[in-house]
Amino acid sequence: MSATLPIPLVDAKPKAPRFRVAVYEGAGAEPLSSEVRTELVCALIAKGFSTSVVRPNGAVSPTNTGTLVVLGQFAEAKPERAEDGDAVVHFREIRNRPTAEVVALAEGIRAELNLPKPGGWKPWFPVIDYDRCTNCMQCLSFCLFDVYGIDADKKIQVQNNNKCKTDCPACSRVCPEVAILFPKYKHGPINGDVVSTDDIRRENMKIDISALLGGDIYEALRDRSAKFKSRFNKERDADKALEERTKCLVKLGEKLDIPPEVFASLPSMDQIRTKATEAAAKAQAALDMQDRK
């Protein structure tokens, strides 16, 4: 990894608190049978718990902060709740308890803490491969849903991943460097598979996007000396151009594997125009900043 990588977006207040369950078979606890351990771990994972199997013969990741629920067959009685540095530890005895009951113990603690149940949505959002990204800003200019933004150093980053449209990989197709991943996508290289030279050379990617956007933005973004122009303002009749592009979107949707729901949720033409202008300005500002460096 190079030293010039952008600082990833990390909120001052993280969205998700640390919460983990440990199936504890270390010192001071009796080991579980293989069957019980397997059933319990599978059940915990199925309920969305990050789970560590703690055994005497190796290491798991540390838990120095947050909440840890420790499930075990303890040799001595443990307090229900204890504090260990910045971590709060909840011990629960699981001897002779059926798996469903043990899982319910963990669920009860999660509910007490008002933590959200995981799995409410398919985690679909772009992930940038900064080994490939050239900070060209095409993704920022292309996305109409404000998923992308720029950091303090004018580097592209994913800022609003919850605004991304599930199953829509369109922005990854705009990227000339194949630097945008959707790990849950079906096919490579968008899913993170190795990028081949054929992927980069794939002309239809450029042709599709060029057609999608009326052929202006791609060229404009690549030609910094010409300065950035709105993706729509080259047209003499902007409204007509937008209508044509809407039709074009539907056709290309099938070709680009973009779900119809995405088109259904597109902003109005006026909003698109505004967003495109704003995005173009942001992208150009970032590109200008790069040029000055």
Binding site: L9, D11, A16, G48, S50
Partner: peptide
């Protein structure tokens, strides 16, 4: 997963790394 649990080796298991990343779960640092 079955082989891991039956092996008796310690390990960490998470439901979905994508979800953790999307939620900016600080556990990813651990």
């Amino acid at each position: 997963l079955r082989a891991l649990t039956e092996s008796g080796m310690p390990f960490d298991a998470v439901p979905d790394l994508c979800e953790m990343s999307a939620q900016r779960d600080p556990s990813l640092h651990d």
